[in-house]
């Protein structure tokens, strides 16, 4: 359970989060959508404790996260840009994260799944963007955590890898985990998401299932529904 209460955050003159309230239940795949600059990444980073809100509280599993860091052992995070220290080999990166977290993992299985075997001894700076993203995926799925946060997970993936990613996400869901996803690929969202949160100007503009959204906007296609949502009056 994630509870966000009256979250404010300002970057310079830019009010990114403007009194955001949000409750998310356990389990299921939740897509956070919204136009550029609507505060998606900021919200995620607030959840991770990377951005410190000006005001408001966040509770994850009934525990306020402010000033704490231990709760992060229950979160797997996949950042948007997969850039790692260039001198390090893939194998060493995995080992390092495992060493840092000291939790049981399934890195080996995942690495094989994404065909990273031949790359393990390569330095990260020599990898292609797609391969780096695969490394990124392995890193964020290797631990058994109740909450997964994926920021634009599909970037740079080949179709095969994309299919595996979707399978992975569903698998996690079937284990009763909560998966938060941001993505610009609406097809992907429509396919995997159970619930959609639409952010606009730092507030929740819509929260509900994909079907509810389609119904509300009277569109058959998520992409069009999203496009329509901002055009319709607030209480529509």
């Amino acid at each position: 359970m994630i509870e966000v209460n009256g979250l404010f955050k300002k970057f310079g003159k830019n009010q990114v989060l403007d009194g955001l309230d949000l409750v998310m239940g356990d389990g299921g795949i939740i897509a956070i959508l919204g136009p550029n600059g609507s505060g998606k990444t900021t919200l995620i980073k607030c959840l991770l404790g990377m951005v410190i809100p000006d005001k408001g509280t966040i509770k994850i599993g009934d525990v306020p996260i402010r000033g704490s860091w231990k709760y992060r052992s229950g979160i797997n995070y996949m950042p948007q840009i997969a850039d790692f220290p260039g001198n390090v080999k893939v194998r060493e990166l995995f080992d390092m994260i495992r060493d840092l977290r000291q939790q049981p993992d399934r890195q080996q299985e995942l690495a094989e799944l994404f065909g990273l075997g031949p790359h393990l001894q390569k330095r990260l700076s020599t990898l292609s963007g797609g391969t780096k993203q695969k490394v990124n995926i392995v890193l964020s799925f290797m631990f058994d955590c109740p909450l997964l946060i994926l920021d634009e997970p599909t970037t740079g993936l080949d179709p095969a890898a994309l299919i595996r990613l979707k399978e992975l996400i569903r698998e996690e869901k079937s284990r009763g985990k909560t998966v938060l996803i941001t993505s610009h690929i609406m097809e992907f969202v429509a396919e995997v998401a159970d619930e959609v949160i639409y952010l606009l100007e730092g507030r929740i503009y819509f929260q509900g299932t994909v079907d509810e959204l389609k119904k509300k906007t009277r569109q058959n296609n998520l992409e069009h529904a999203i496009a329509a949502i901002t055009a319709t009056p607030e209480n529509a």
Partner: peptide, 16 residues
């Protein structure tokens, strides 16, 4: 140069 690395670490259960 280690900005991304730092961000990777920030998401881990390690104090800043």
């Amino acid at each position: 140069n280690s900005k991304e690395f730092t961000e990777l670490l920030l998401a881990q259960p390690i104090p800043r």
